[in-house]
Amino acid sequence: MKITIKDKEYDSGAFTIAKHQAVVKAWNACEGKDLFKEPYTEEQLKELSAAMALCFGLKPEEITENVSVEEITYFFYGIQNETINKFNALFLEVEENFTNGSGELPNELQPDN
């Protein structure tokens, strides 16, 4: 994913284990929250900002001072969507290579019945 802060673009790069763990921990801490009906607490926003900062190689205050709550929330939905799309593309590639695009196992891999 990419964000722009003060006319400079940042790319989150690979979704590493450390990034994944930070994102999941922050997002789970906000489960059931809503932008208006049950808004995030200051502590939750700090945790979301810290996880987002880690993903982009920034300091948490660079996020809290320059990124809107809507953009922070969008990042978490976006990173989930991007990860699912990458997984699906990898899965389809493996399936296509493994089954030669037919959806059937090659003869040499068919179980002997």
Rank of each mutant, 00 (worst) to 15 (best):
W27G: 02
I63A: 07
M52T: 08
F75A: 04
P60H: 04
T83V: 05
K37A: 11
N66Q: 03
E70M: 14
E47Y: 05
F91L: 11
I72V: 15
A22Q: 03
N81D: 15
L92V: 09
A14H: 13
G78Q: 04
I3A: 05
N97F: 02
A51C: 05
Q21S: 09
T41V: 01
A29I: 01
N85W: 15
C55N: 12
K33P: 00
V24M: 13
A53M: 05
E93M: 14
I79E: 02
T73F: 15
G57P: 09
G78M: 04
N28E: 15
I72H: 02
E9N: 07
S49Q: 04
T64E: 10
N81T: 14
S12H: 13
M52K: 15
E104H: 11
I17N: 08
L105I: 06
E9L: 09
G13L: 08
I63K: 05
L54H: 08
L90S: 10
W27N: 03
S68R: 15
E42W: 04
S49M: 03
K46D: 14
A29D: 14
P60W: 02
V24N: 07
G101V: 13
C30M: 06
S102L: 05
A51I: 00
E31L: 07
T64M: 09
G103I: 14
E104L: 12
V24P: 01
S68N: 08
D11M: 04
K25C: 04
G101S: 13
V94I: 15
N97K: 14
E47V: 01
F87E: 09
D11W: 01
I3F: 05
L54V: 06
L48N: 11
K86V: 08
I79Q: 03
S12G: 11
K59V: 08
L48R: 00
A14L: 13
V23R: 00
L58N: 08
E95A: 14
E104R: 15
T41R: 03
F76N: 12
E38S: 13
Y40T: 01
N28W: 01
E47W: 07
K86N: 06
L48Y: 02
L105T: 05
A22D: 09
S102Q: 09
K33N: 11
V67K: 03
K33I: 07
Y40L: 12
N66P: 05
N85Y: 14
F76P: 01
V94C: 07
A51R: 02
L58K: 06
K33L: 11
I5Q: 07
A26F: 01
G32P: 07
D7V: 06
V23G: 00
G32E: 01
L105F: 12
E93F: 06
A53C: 09
E47D: 14
F56M: 01
E9S: 11
Q21G: 03
M52Y: 12
Q44R: 08
A18G: 15
K19S: 02
K86W: 02
E96I: 02
L48I: 00
E47F: 02
K86A: 08
G32K: 11
L90Y: 13
V24D: 04
F75Q: 03
C30R: 12
S68I: 10
T73G: 05
L45Q: 12
